[in-house]
């Protein structure tokens, strides 16, 4: 099993915690209180190795940071050796994209670019898609704008809704795949460098994740 550290960044009240809870617990709380400091959660997913058609289990250790300005100084500690960063913005709030871009810049300057998978995520898609209803808000951030920016910066890009769960799984799935790809490259490189010296066999010593619904010891 591969373990990856993932950190969520973004302006306050864009729905970072909601996304994580949707992903980890598949639940949504309409009245979630704002996060204090940084919360820790973990979840495993399965992805398919494109070469060997085998299933690979990936475990995410997720640090859900607080978006409030006050906790900004905590963020570096969590993104410093993270493998992936989820930069979240609110599709109904233009400002939040600007803040997200700020985070992306900070990540690019502080962390080596090639070690880190950054994924730009626009949340609260449900607010815009409820067409015809009085409660729907205009979409302040066009998908094309954000996507253009993401392509330009070489980021993954998704639009999700933590409330309906739309697209949340895909975000982590795509991150997992990308991370796995990286890992494979890395392994291949190191193996190449080690040469034919070691016919090492990797034995998985850890027992399978208890988060797995099929596992007996929950």
């Amino acid at each position: 099993m591969l373990q990856f550290k993932l950190v969520l960044l973004g302006d306050s009240s864009v729905g970072k915690s909601s996304i994580v809870h949707r992903f980890v617990k598949d639940s949504f709380d309409e009245f979630r209180e704002s996060t204090i400091g940084a919360a820790f959660l973990s979840q495993t997913i399965k992805i398919e190795d494109k070469g060997s058609q085998q299933e690979v289990v990936i475990k995410f250790e997720i640090w859900d940071t607080a978006g409030q300005e006050r906790y900004k100084s905590l963020a570096p500690m969590y993104y410093r050796n993270a493998n992936a960063a989820l930069v979240v913005y609110d599709v109904t709030q233009q400002d939040s994209l600007a803040k997200a871009q700020g985070w992306v810049n900070e990540l690019k300057t502080k962390v080596g670019e090639d070690d880190l998978v950054i994924c730009l995520v626009g949340n609260k898609l449900d607010l815009c898609t409820e067409e015809g209803e009085s409660s729907s808000k205009p979409k302040a951030v066009e998908s094309s704008d954000a996507e253009g920016y993401a392509n330009e910066q070489g980021l993954l890009f998704h639009e999700v809704s933590a409330k309906t769960g739309e697209g949340v799984k895909q975000v982590f799935q795509s991150i997992g795949e990308k991370l796995y790809e990286f890992k494979k490259h890395e392994l291949a490189n190191s193996k190449g460098r080690q040469g034919a010296g070691g016919d090492t066999v990797n034995v998985q010593l850890q027992r399978p994740s208890t988060n797995d619904a099929t596992s007996c010891c929950g």
């Binding site: 204090i36 400091g37 940084a38 919360a39 820790f40 006050r70 906790y71 100084s73 905590l74």
Partner: peptide, 10 residues
Amino acid sequence: MVLKEQKFLV
């Protein structure tokens, strides 16, 4: 202050 808070949380 934030760090101490976080330490407590962790």
